[in-house]
C-alpha cells in the first residue's frame, strides 16, 4: 500500500531524511519512532504531498505522490497532533464539512454513527467543538478518516497531550481501522504507546531509518533499550 524508495530531503544543506526506503502493507500499523528533529514529520509531509522529495519515489496504492497527488489524497486520511476543527461548529457539522470536501455526503444519522464508531459520545455530537477536550477532537479526526474510507491513515503524534485513558482509546481506534483493512503509518516519540499500537516500529535518527523492530517480538522494555541504544 505504501512504498517509499530511496527518498532524500534536505533543507538548506541540512539532511532531514536520508535515503529512506520503506514498505507498509495493507492492514498493517507501522510506527516511526524517533526524537524531535529526526525527520519523522518531514517523511509524513512528503507522503501527504506538502513537501517534495529531492530524490526517490513515494507511492500510495500504486500512485506516485509527485505525479498523481489528487489520486493519492483520495486514498489517504490524516490526523495531526492537534486536530484543529472549526470551533464554532458542532462535531457533526465539522464531520459533514470535511466529508463534503472529500466529495462524500452523509445523512445526519450516518454522521452520528461515524462519530459513535470513533468513540465520541452522542451527547457531544451537537455541541460546539470549542467545548471539546483534545481527546474528543482527535476522535472527530478519526471519524473524518472513517468517513473517507481511506486506504492509508497517517497520524502525526496523535496521542500527544492526551490523558492515559484517551490515549489508550485512540490506540484501540487505530487498531480497529487497521483491522478493517486500512494501512496506518504513525509518527510518535511515545515508545510505550507505539509498542501498544504498532505491528512494526521503525527507529529514526538524523533522518535515517536505523532499525525496524516487530512489536510482537519485543517487550516494551526491550524496545526502550533498543531505542536508547540507537538514539543516545
Amino acid at each position: 500500500m505504501l512504498e517509499i524508495q530511496g527518498v532524500t530531503k534536505t533543507f538548506k544543506q541540512q539532511t532531514a531524511v536520508d535515503q529512506l526506503s520503506l514498505s507498509v502493507s495493507e492492514g498493517e500499523v507501522f510506527a516511526l519512532l524517533g526524537p524531535n528533529g529526526a525527520g519523522k514529520t518531514t517523511t509524513l509531509n512528503m507522503i501527504l504531498g506538502f513537501e517534495k522529495a529531492d530524490s526517490g519515489t513515494i507511492k500510495v496504492d500504486g500512485f506516485d505522490v509527485s505525479k498523481d497527488l489528487p489520486e493519492v489524497r483520495k486514498r489517504l486520511a490524516f490526523i495531526p497532533e492537534n486536530v484543529q476543527l472549526y470551533p464554532h461548529l458542532t462535531g457533526k457539522e465539522n464531520l459533514a464539512y470535511f466529508s463534503q470536501l472529500a466529495g462524500i455526503s452523509y445523512s445526519p444519522e450516518q454522521l452520528s454513527s461515524l462519530l459513535l464508531e470513533a468513540g465520541l459520545q452522542e451527547k457531544a455530537h451537537d455541541s460546539p467543538v470549542s467545548t471539546y477536550s483534545k481527546g474528543m477532537r482527535q476522535k472527530v479526526g478519526v471519524a473524518i478518516a472513517y468517513s473517507k474510507k481511506a486506504k492509508l491513515l497517517l497520524l502525526d503524534e496523535p496521542a500527544s497531550g492526551l490523558d492515559p485513558l484517551s490515549s489508550a482509546e485512540l490506540s484501540q481506534l487505530v487498531r480497529k481501522v487497521a483491522a478493517q483493512g486500512a494501512t496506518v503509518l504513525m509518527v510518535s516519540h511515545d515508545l510505550f504507546r507505539v509498542k501498544e499500537t504498532a505491528d512494526r516500529v521503525g527507529i529514526f535518527k538524523n533522518g535515517e531509518l536505523k532499525k525496524i523492530v516487530k512489536a510482537s517480538e519485543v517487550t516494551a522494555n526491550d524496545l526502550e533499550l533498543i531505542y536508547q541504544g540507537i538514539v543516545e
Binding site: 501527504l48 489517504l76 495531526p80 484543529q84 470535511f98 470536501l101 472529500a102 479526526g141 473524518i144 473517507k148
Partner: peptide, 11 residues
C-alpha cells in the same frame, strides 16, 4: 494548522 487537514480531503 487546519490547512493540511483541509487539503488532505482532496480540495
Amino acid at each position: 494548522d487546519r490547512v493540511r487537514l483541509l487539503l488532505v480531503q482532496g480540495v
